[in-house]
Amino acid sequence: MKRLFLPVAAFAVVLVFWHYYVTLNDVPKFVLPSPIAIWAALLENIPLWIEASGATLWVTLKALLAAVISGVLLALAFSLSRTFEATVYPFAVILQVTPVVAIAPLVLIWVGIDNVDRAQVIIAWLVAFFPILANMSAGLKSVDANLSDLFKLYGASPLQRFRYLLWPTALPYLLASLKVSGGLALIGGVVAEFVAGSGTSTGLAWRIIEAGNRLQIEKMFAGLLLLAAMGMLIFYGFTLLEWIITRRQRG
C-alpha cells in the first residue's frame, strides 16, 4: 500500500505546487500551462486522443511482437552454433549502438514512402530487438550444467531439451527483457513519427508536433502525459506478467 501511496502523494504535491506557481506568477500558458489547462485539453477532444494513442500503441505492440519473435529465434540459433553467434552478433550490436534517430530517415526512404506505418514498426523493432536477443541469449546460456547432464543421461531429444529445459530456464530472462523492450518499442515508434513528419501519421507524437506548431502547449503536455501513461502501462503490464509466471519459482 505504501509503495502505491508514496509516489501518488508525491505526484499530487508536484501538481499542486505547479498549479499555484503558474497561477500566482502569471506564467504565460504558451510557456508552461497549468495542470488544469492540460487536463482540460485532454478532455476537450477525447476521441482524437483515443485514436492517436491507439495508433501509437498498435505500432508499439506490432514492433514488440516482431522483436520477441526475431530475438528469441536468433538467440536460439546462437545457442545452437557458436560460429553463427560470433559471425552475426556484432551486427546486432551495430544496430543497437547506432542512434535510431540517425537510422530512421533511411528506413523511411526505403520502406516508408507509401507506407509510414510499416517504417514505424521497423524503426521501433530496431530499438526493441536487442535487449530481447541479449537477454534470451544469456538465459539460454544459464542452463544448470548438472540438469543439462541429466537430460543427456536420460536421452532427451533436442525438442525435449528445448521444451523442458532451455525454454523454462530462459523465460524469466525473456520476461525481464520485455519490460525494457516494451518501453524502447514505444520510444522507437515515437521517434519514427517525429521523423516521418506531417500529415502521414496519426499517432501521439504527431499530435504533439502539431500542437507545438500551433503553440498549443497544453495539448503538447496532454500528449506527453498519455505517452508517459502508455509507457507505464506497458512496463507494469509486463512486470505483472513476470510476477505471475515466475511466482512459483520464488517459493
Binding site: 548438472n146 540438469l147 547432464d149 523465460l171
Partner: peptide, 9 residues
C-alpha cells in the same frame, strides 16, 4: 549430483 539440480519451475 552434489547440487540437487531440480527444475525450479
Amino acid at each position: 549430483f552434489q547440487d540437487p539440480a531440480l527444475m525450479p519451475w
